[in-house]
Design a binder for these strands. Sequence first.
DNA 1: GAGGGATTTGACCAAATGGTCAAGATACAA
DNA 2: TTGTATCTTGACCATTTGGTCAAATCCCTC
Lengths: 226, 226
Amino acid sequence: MAGVGGQTQSSSKTGGMSRIQEKNRNLILDAALGEFSKKGFSGATVERIAAEAGMSKSNLLYYFSSKEAIYNATLAHILEVWLAPLKTLDPAGDPARELAGYICQKIEMSANFPEASRLFANEVMQGAPQILPILETDLKRLVQEKCGVIEDWIDAGKLRRVDPLHLIFTIWATTQHYADFSVQIRALTGRDLSDAAFLQQTEEAVTSLILNGVGLAWPPEETEQE
Amino acid sequence: MAGVGGQTQSSSKTGGMSRIQEKNRNLILDAALGEFSKKGFSGATVERIAAEAGMSKSNLLYYFSSKEAIYNATLAHILEVWLAPLKTLDPAGDPARELAGYICQKIEMSANFPEASRLFANEVMQGAPQILPILETDLKRLVQEKCGVIEDWIDAGKLRRVDPLHLIFTIWATTQHYADFSVQIRALTGRDLSDAAFLQQTEEAVTSLILNGVGLAWPPEETEQE
DNA sequence: GAGGGATTTGACCAAATGGTCAAGATACAA
DNA sequence: TTGTATCTTGACCATTTGGTCAAATCCCTC
């Protein structure tokens, strides 16, 4: 119903779990991520997740008490890593490098974990029934903190005056778009982020667009060795 | 299974339909848009759509032969209007005004038809099972044409050299993000595009970020009357 | 206002699916 | 080896849900 951490164990804590238990929980979570991200919560079936995890439906339900429990566990499992990059924005760092680094991290997340991106997108588009409380507390706090950082950079004259919130939204939107809409992108370009050359081209294009958008020189001036 | 135009009638052609027929088809399509955009294809139920449209499930199935037929009709119904703004990009116009106009159109689409945006996003995220052929033909042709326009602007030195494709993706991503992720945005800001002030603020933020990103002055220099 | 096609619906059906349960298989400690 | 807790599964159940059908009912024309 509400709150993502409501299963047996908080998340990937190995303690208090037998070898078999840990192995099977991981198999299930991997399978569930694939299924939920591909079909959404409603479209996913417990049977398919079990098959993908190589066990019977009954056995899966021995580890997770319900479909919703699997879903919540999957969500919790990816949420932390999915929101992590923002935390690395360093107030003391060079704004251009910090923002560029953040953008590239996000694009590489889209390249390496597109299912996580789609799962998250799906959840939010359905009204975030499970993670709304987290968005309203943890994420909100984090975003406000980082908005402060950007604000400080602006006040220090390091970048053009822009609304930090919309800057963050723009970075999220553009970077996640390449994962969530990869089918459309493939239909239009014949490639996606799994193509190394396309990945690099995307990183350059998005980074340069946004950094220039906030008035930062990009690519950085030639500084030889620094 | 494939191709969106496969129902009884091509789309909103009034011809050959009784008054009752037209009224009910519209009721159904409206209800279906709400339901499909909220729950996705799998999560939606024919019964709820019928209820929302004020008729029995049986009667709904008298007008559309299957759930998939309703879905396809809904998709076809919105697709045209959804992709329309891009067509207005005028090669002869001023690049800054043209791009700003396009961006604002898209944001206003997100504000006025968020369900359409979410329906489209859902369809594409599921792998575009119904509209992939359209993306690969009509949309691809349109996008290539407009990329050419932007390319010409670049060659004429009117804007910085950027990859037109990624520029278009960025515009799509940012503008649609405000509709598709409105729950998250509301969780973080307390507002969304249905708030006129927030809408305007968003238009300014996104437009200024992207236009500056491609090296165009924005807002435009004071030209008094032109 | 009668005839006939268009419209509407409740009853019903079959398949899919989440979840239960009791019995069997397995691993492991003593 | 053996007893016990853990693990695994097939059989089964209740509910949901997409779709059918025949019987009304409505609307319009002649």
